[in-house]
Structure formats: C-alpha cells, structure tokens
Amino acid sequence: MTEPLLDLTPEGLFSPALGAHIDPHRPVARAIITHGHADHARAGHGAVLATRQTLDIMAIRYGADFAGQTQVADGEITMGRARVRLVPAGHVLGSAQVVIEAGGRRAVVSGDYTRTANPACAPFEPVPCDLFVTEATFALPVFRHPPPEVEIARLLASVAAFPERPHLIGTYALGKAQRLIMLLRQAGWHAPIHIHGALQRLCDYHVEQGIPLGELRPATMDRAEARALSSAIVLAPPSAFASPWVQRFADPVVGFASGWMQIRARARQRGVELPLVISDHSDWGQLTATVEELDPAEFWITHGREDALMRWADLTGRRARPLRLLGYEEEAE
C-alpha cells in the first residue's frame, strides 16, 4: 500500500510523505504555509517552508523569530519521501498552492485562491493533479463576484456624488487593501489615498516588492484636518470602525470591501452604506470551474461551505470529501 500524500490530523492537514503540516492551526515541528493571513500563518512552528514574500509578511506580523527556522520555497524541493513546490494562488502577495508529488501521484493544496486577476499579486496557476484540496469560503451558487472594476466604478461614482463626505472603506490589511489601491489606480484615481496606521507596514512592503501603490497618506489627521477633506478615500481595517478613530470624520460614507457584501443581510449587519463586492477568494463559478479544469480523481474541501460543493460533486459524479477544518475564520479575509 502506498503512503498517502495527505491526511487529516488534529493540527490540520498533514502530508505523511513530506513529514510536514500545511497551514496548521497549532504549533508543529514542520509547517508549509500557503500565505500570510493570520488564520493560515501562525507563529511558533519549528520549521517553516513558504514563499519569500510569505516569510517576509510573517516576519512583519510576528517578528523575525516567528519560527525556529525558515526556508524559502524556491523551485522543487525534496522533503522526506516526496517532492514539493509552491505555485501562485492569486489570493494575496506571496500566496501559493502546495504541490506534492510522490510515487507518480500528485496532490495540490490550494490554500485560499481566486481566478480573478489581481494587480497586487501573481495569478493562480492551474496544476492538474490526482487530489485537489480546495477552499470553499464562497461555495454557494449565489456567490458570483462581479468584476472588481464595476465595484470600483461604484465607489468612484459615490465619491463624485458626495465629495464633501469622506469615503471610509473597511478592508483587511494584507491583500485586500493593496488590491483596492491598485484597482483605484487602474481606474484612474491618482489622488492620494489615506490609510489607517494598521495598513502602513504591509503597504510599504508591497511597494518594496515592486507594486506601485502611488501616494499614500496616513489617516491619522486631527479632527479639523479630517473635516476639511474633500473627495477623500480612506482605507482602514474593520476593527477601526468600532474604535473612536472614526469619530474624527464628519458624516462619512462607510463602505466595506468583501465578498460577503453580496448578501444584503450581511452588509446590513455591518451597518455599511456602500457595500463593495470585492473578494480575494473564488466564487462558486470559479470553484467549480477549477475542479473541472484540474479534473482530479478526488477533491477535498478544507474550510467554508462544503454542503453545496458536496451536492455539486454528487450531481456531477465526482468524488469529494469534506474535511471541516476548524480554526479558519470566514470573516478574516
């Protein structure tokens, strides 16, 4: 009997052939990290293998000593009784899929991914495989993310309609913020964009990595300055909206950029006036098209809404298995 390429352990997904966990949610001896989001990349592992950018991002978030030792995934690496390489996932800067090969079989762990072009990172690279492990954050047929350009046009139309009201857009610090900035630049918005302090270091890092974000200004102005803003776009992490930081802005239009904004009840819950459906994850169409394209003998579903994908697998005669991994936050990205 051949050794399985992947297995499930209490710490999360494990490859017996590699002797390493993938995105474990507890400290382990050897971890492969797909990308820098907090629910995938945790501090305290013995050894970490990841892309250069993911390692840099983890160091920015957790400090340089976030793991016992680190290794940049550069080309194909032999580890234990298997070979591993990381290929782009299109999710955020540095995000990767983990491709594992041994005994003539290949497994791919997607991490989080999207097939929509993202000007702030490399695009998803499809790798045909025997076993595909997919995320399922937006795995319901109602999730069909509109082109991001359409949502950016809505934001700019609102800024034009209400120039006296600053537009405060909630966005996660890693990936979404920079993508939003790049989309605004591509749409011809060249004015300075104000960013909350919590976004500064990751924006700086993107610029260092050659992503031209244009002029960014700290959104730490005082009340008088904040009230003098005109046609301003201000980006801030969601947590800032519950903090007194918001109070400096007079009558803001509060927006939020997330795939969840497609559902009205979710947008209302957040008290959002301008919901922007911009997601770094795959929507239903992309999830099912990706499985069809890679055509694996079997696919596993890590986290998200697995019921609908399981039903789809049933209807299309595919083998699928829900892993129901815990510890991933649906909101956090």
């Binding site: 319901l140 109602v142 559902i263 009840a265 809404r305 609908a308 039903r311 789809w312």
Partner: peptide, 14 residues
C-alpha cells in the same frame, strides 16, 4: 438544482 437552491435560500434569507 432544488437542493442547491434550498442551501442558498437558507443562507441568503430573502
């Protein structure tokens, strides 16, 4: 598919 529809309706609520 009615089952996919039901799962979706359950989530969306409207």
């Amino acid at each position: 598919d009615p089952e996919l529809f039901a799962l979706s309706y359950d989530y969306v609520g409207d």
